[in-house]
């Protein structure tokens, strides 16, 4: 996550990256599963920086490879210097690699059907949203990347689910409570603290209060304006794996949002949902060991650009 700003935002790195076909992907699946995509990754993953660390539980890194799977160079860094060096070495290795070793001996498109990925579970009528999360201003923020840390997840909705948040009769001042299951999913899977790194969903039993309501503000032939209001209170059982006195984790937040619904195309043309309030506690990998709060946190849901299909981190818990 740090690498987004520290490395990939640098013009010099971007110019080098443009000489490759660039991809970003989740590594656990590539490292552990069996399909043509994963197996090609597994052919090179231990030939560079992991060569003497094959007992590592992860294969995170930045890999430059030929389409054939020949490793050109790799690195695991959030610093632009080592990245520039790795990309430069990789381009030299590519130039030196015989053409006969550069490419797969088959058309990789022909094997796509053998590959199972989360993106394939996106509903045919689905709507994807970006969910940004950031610490809100407070005294005593550390004077480093953590002060402005920002992260992103995706939330997916079926069109029918979004239709279900509209009042049955769409008229000014009409209201409708969101279905409980949908509110639970939004709160448990998406109002989590991943500002600094990965975290896990809130457990089902930890949601003490959660509600969202839609109110119709205005109705026109082509546009229905809506407001969302709600709240969520979550407190999870204590994190007991660690001996450092880690506390329970939870949130106490208000939700407020705005949207425009087009009755003709039966879809949202604008959608924003903001959640803000307190968070506390931590999980194993979210880098809150020195910052368990309570402290203020905010999330913003917005419609993702057309075609953006990165799966939600907690897609497995959607029950789809």
């Amino acid at each position: 996550m740090k690498g987004r700003q520290a490395v990939w935002s640098q013009p010099e790195i971007q110019a080098l990256a443009a000489r490759f076909v660039a991809a970003a992907d989740e590594v656990w699946r590539l490292h552990n599963l069996k399909d043509p995509e994963c197996e090609l990754f597994q052919e090179f993953m231990d030939k560079g920086i992991y060569g003497d660390r094959t007992d590592s539980s992860t294969r995170q890194g930045i890999f430059a490879v030929a389409p054939s799977g020949v490793l050109l160079a790799d690195v695991n860094t959030t610093q632009p210097g080592p990245m520039r060096d790795m990309l430069t070495r990789a381009l030299r290795a590519w130039d030196a690699l015989p053409k006969s070793e550069r490419f797969l001996p088959y058309d990789p498109e022909a094997r796509r059907a053998e590959i199972q990925r989360g993106e394939q579970r996106f509903p045919s009528d689905g709507v994807a949203m970006r969910v940004h999360v950031r610490d809100l201003p407070r005294a005593g923020q550390p004077a480093d990347w953590r002060a402005k840390a920002l992260n992103l997840d995706y939330a997916w909705f079926r069109r029918g689910e979004l239709r279900s948040v509209l009042p049955v009769r769409v008229a000014k001042r009409a209201t409708r409570a969101w279905p409980a299951a949908l509110v639970q999913r939004v709160v448990r899977l998406h109002l989590t603290d991943y500002v600094r790194g990965q975290t896990t969903p809130h457990e089902a039993g930890s949601v003490h209060a959660a509600s969202l309501q839609t109110e119709v503000l205005s109705v026109k032939k082509t546009k229905v304006e809506l407001r969302f209001t709600g709240k969520a209170q979550v407190n999870t059982e204590p994190w007991t794996d660690r001996p450092d006195g880690s506390r329970a984790r939870g949130i106490d937040v208000a939700l407020l949002g705005r949207a425009s619904w087009d009755p003709r195309s039966v879809r949202f043309t604008e959608f924003e949902l903001v959640a803000a309030g307190q968070r506390w506690g931590r999980t194993e990998y979210n880098f809150r060991q020195d910052d368990v709060g309570p402290a203020p946190l905010g999330w913003v849901f917005t419609l993702a650009p057309q075609g953006e299909r990165v799966p939600p981190a907690a897609l497995g818990a959607y029950g789809w």
């Binding site: 995170q60 930045i62 890999f63 389409p67």
Partner: peptide, 26 residues
């Protein structure tokens, strides 16, 4: 957003691949 998409395109474009692979989708 997937390694295989890059493999397919790189094979056609005759270019090397840059893969950013992290725990959680980058």
């Amino acid at each position: 957003s997937s390694y295989w998409d890059a493999v397919v395109e790189a094979q056609k474009a005759k270019k090397p691949i840059l893969l950013w692979a992290m725990n959680g989708h980058p």
